[in-house]
Design a protein around this nucleic acid. Structure first.
Lengths: 181, 181
DNA sequence: TACGTATGAATGAAAG
DNA sequence: CTTTCATTCATACGTA
């Protein structure tokens, strides 16, 4: 029995906002907030192609992540659901805006600027979803970038993760899901 | 009490086009800030009953507003999201206060009472959403009032808005959304 | 300069 | 899956 403080309340959670800030302010307890490690790992999984993990996978991931702080499987479930939805939503919006710009282009600020500002705009997600095995260095959003920057030591976490994933689990790997895609 | 103007401040006078783009304070770069016209129009739409515009509507609105300053659809999305949430929050806060008072005074007063005294506190917002076409003179918050006061000349903006909305669009009006409710 | 308020942005949790 | 709600973080601005 280990009663770590990590988890819901204590929130040392660092999830950046938009301006490269990770808050550690007194967050109110009540809802789960990923710790940096958890966020990093989740993001990695996402970037690896995981989009809609099965119940079992969710369970596994959750178990794994619980090492870094309190977490429930539903949190994992929601995380992926939201992350995926928002990636799409963003993509959708951006692309339309982009179109608008094209149409009404003021020529003052060309589209190039937009792409840079808005970030990676048009990427085929299906492809990514199945071939992401090779990190294409195309993080989905600025967030991941921040995570990566502010938490390099998390690599160890990733390592541990992979490790455990391959040992104490009955299922092969998270890669397994890729096989039935 | 705040003078909100300037569009985005694309790190500098990014957009040209519409006149009267006051960057006044010369601050704010990074996050969108509605110009007076944009704010006026958004507020009007809100008061007209628009609460949760669909993706398409958001796009239209955004496109329209882009005439008055740089703006992305997500800004419109967030604007409505926040505006609605805060209206609700405020209302909730008030009702709670009222309730406290009530309770303290006399427990006899029950819910029925609230409706009468507090005014249209617990209104069915769906209804509003569909019938708000007729300004019920129930402004949501002081802000809108201010906007209205400090920017009367914006009516022209509203006019233009309506105009464009009715002409350069393939869809009828913003009322269209009401059809599928 | 310090702080309160209004509000843009983000995101966990759910509902639809 | 999509859309909405609730909460919280972050920041612009006004004010003392």
């Amino acid at each position: 029995m280990e009663e770590r403080m990590s988890g819901f309340c204590t929130t040392k959670a660092g999830r950046g906002g938009s301006s490269g800030n990770n808050y550690a302010s007194g967050t109110k307890c009540g809802r789960w907030n990923p710790t940096i490690e958890q966020g990093k790992l989740l993001t990695d999984l996402f970037r690896s192609g995981v989009r809609t993990p099965s119940t079992d996978e969710i369970q596994n991931i959750s178990t794994r992540l619980s090492f870094y702080g309190k977490i429930e499987s539903k949190n994992v479930f929601y995380w992926f659901q939201n992350h995926k939805a928002r990636e799409r939503q963003k993509r959708r919006r951006v692309s339309v805006d982009e179109k608008d710009v094209m149409i009404r282009r003021d020529d003052k600020f060309s589209s190039a600027r937009y792409f840079t500002e808005i970030g990676q705009v048009n990427e085929r997600e299906q492809v990514i979803e199945t071939l992401q095995l090779f990190p294409l260095k195309s993080f989905d959003e600025v967030e991941s970038e921040k995570f990566r920057l502010q938490a390099n030591e998390c690599n160890e976490a990733a390592a541990a993760f992979s490790y455990k994933f391959g040992t104490e689990m009955d299922r092969p790997q998270l890669d397994l899901r890729l096989s039935f895609l």
